[in-house]
Computed example of a mutant assay.
Amino acid sequence: MFTFALIACFIGTPELAIVYVPVIMPLMLSLGYDRVTAAAISLCGTIAGFTAALTNPFTVGTAQMVAGLPLYSGMIYRIICFLIIIIIGIAYVMRYAEKTRTKPKDAIKSHTLKSNVTNRQKVAGIVTALFFIGMIAGVILYRWDMVTLGGYFIAMGIIPALIVGMGSKEIAESFNEGFRDVLVGAMVCGIARAVAVVMNEGQIMDTIVYGISTVISQLPESVTVIGMLITQSLFNFFVPSGSGQALIMMPIMAPLADLVGITRQTAILAFQFGDGFSNILFPTSGYFMATLAIAGVGWNRWVKFILPLFLLWMSAGAILLVVANLIGWY
Rank of each mutant, 00 (worst) to 15 (best):
L6E: 03
E15K: 06
E15G: 09
M25Q: 11
L29F: 03
S30P: 06
I41T: 01
C44S: 07
G45K: 01
T51P: 00
A52K: 03
G61A: 10
T62N: 11
T62E: 11
A63K: 13
P70A: 00
Y72C: 00
G74N: 02
I76D: 10
I79E: 11
C81S: 07
F82A: 00
I86D: 01
I87K: 09
R95Q: 10
R95M: 06
A97E: 11
A97L: 10
K99C: 05
R101F: 04
D106V: 14
S110D: 03
H111R: 09
V117D: 13
T118H: 08
N119G: 10
R120W: 15
K122L: 08
G125N: 08
L141V: 06
L141C: 15
Y142K: 15
W144N: 03
M146F: 10
G150L: 05
G151H: 01
F153Y: 12
I159D: 10
E170F: 04
E173W: 05
F175A: 09
F179P: 13
R180A: 13
R180W: 04
D181P: 08
L183N: 00
V184Q: 15
G185V: 00
V188C: 03
G190V: 06
I191Y: 14
R193S: 11
V195G: 02
M199A: 15
Y210Q: 12
G211H: 03
Q218G: 13
S222I: 14
V225E: 07
G227L: 15
L229S: 00
N236H: 05
N236R: 05
F237C: 15
F237M: 07
F237H: 14
I248C: 14
I248L: 12
M249Q: 06
M250Y: 14
M250Q: 04
D258W: 12
I262S: 12
F271I: 08
Q272N: 13
F273I: 09
G276H: 06
F277M: 11
F277S: 08
S285M: 05
G286L: 03
M289T: 02
T291Q: 12
L309I: 07
W313N: 15
I319T: 09
V322Q: 12
V322L: 13
I327H: 02
W329S: 00
